[in-house]
Design a protein around this nucleic acid. Sequence first.
DNA 1: ATCCAGGACCACT
DNA 2: AGTGGTCATGGA
Length: 294
Amino acid sequence: MFTRATQEAHTFIPVRNYSLGETLTSGQAFRWREVDREWEGVIGKRWVRLSQETGAIRAAAFETGSVEDWSWLKNYLQSETDLDRVISTFPRDQHMRAAISACPGLRLLKQEPWECLASFILSSTKQIVQIQQIIGLLCERFGEPIDTPSGRTVHTFPSAERVAAITEEDLRCCKMGFRAPYLRASAQMIARGDLDLSGIARLDVENARGELMRLPGVGRKIADCVLLFAYHFQEAFPLDVWILNAMRHLYFARRRPSPKGLLKFTQTYFGPNAGYAQQYLFHYMRTRIGRAKK
DNA sequence: ATCCAGGACCACT
DNA sequence: AGTGGTCATGGA
């Protein structure tokens, strides 16, 4: 009986103006961890290690068979997106300028829809470190094990079918609290085929958002996260507490426009890549401004 | 100890 | 169409 060798494959992905660190810590993906100046994570069924070089990202993947086609990784990293062209569409006010210069090379990843959706269902009123912890527990307990070169075992993100079969009690053991029934019921709708995640890519943004919001635990904000981070609807603009405070603080100097009014403002003001601009503001506020909000 | 976190949902006006 | 309370858990 032959077992196909599991082996580590390497490549260099040429990049320009790309910061792995800013990108992987900006609150869009939650499974990356920094180990000795390298980044380790799981994409689909592959364990991956990335590191920043000048002009390239060095990548190692660990899987059965040989790896010759790296398009799955380039697609995830969006390494071929012309970031300068995206940024050129941002408004040129002082706050955007500050955010852009504070987070050079920050990118939007292109994530798998189910993992992205489930992750953000688990994100509500949680800090990013806690979201990472919850997702880590969920994967460790219910994902499929993957070998790594170091001998450490990591796990895939459990599929919708798998999550649908987990009891609410077992989900709550992953510390997700009141989000457990939301995650479970959403997984069941997807597993049953009541909602087709792959079909959402073909819809216009309003219908795509409407589809996602049929899922329990998915409102406007989480839907916009999935629209932006998994489907790349560039006009999706996740309006969370950080962005809300940023907008009020930076653009509306303590007048207090309603969230609805703010959303309308963002759609015209931030241009065709509003969601991308939002990610810069979010990361900028969260890492550089910190408590200076309000 | 008190407040708050990449919210959604329900019951109220 | 807009408010307020509630949900679970752990940082700050």
